[in-house]
Amino acid sequence: MSEVKASKALRDGLFKSFEDMVRKAMAPNLPIPQRQALLNRAQELRAQWVELEAARFNSEAAAFTAAQTKVLEATTDLRKATKDLDDAVKIAEKATKVFGLLDKLLKKAVKFAPVPL
């Protein structure tokens, strides 16, 4: 794995040179040995370009992690907001139980209340 990190312009420039070389290797007016030599050179350029791209890919792990942290924070906020809404609904659900319990208590209180003389 290569440790060299090249700029985007350099990587793009290298890839463009590769494409130019491939185009020349396909030129029907050139002698076959020259075309084969251009094709071989294009293969070498491709290998160098792949190395530079791989170096960029490998070096960006930290930058990805930093961006992920920010998105995770927003995700945590969303999770909390969802929970807050659930809590609000639970209040209504608890109110149902309270009313029901009060009703039961009242009925029991009436049942056991002393009979007026």
Binding site: A67, K70, E73, A74, A81
Partner: peptide, 13 residues
């Protein structure tokens, strides 16, 4: 809550 989260995550996204 949706608005706030979208705005917060936007630069990182």
């Amino acid at each position: 809550a949706l608005d706030a989260a979208i705005a917060k995550a936007a630069p990182a996204i």
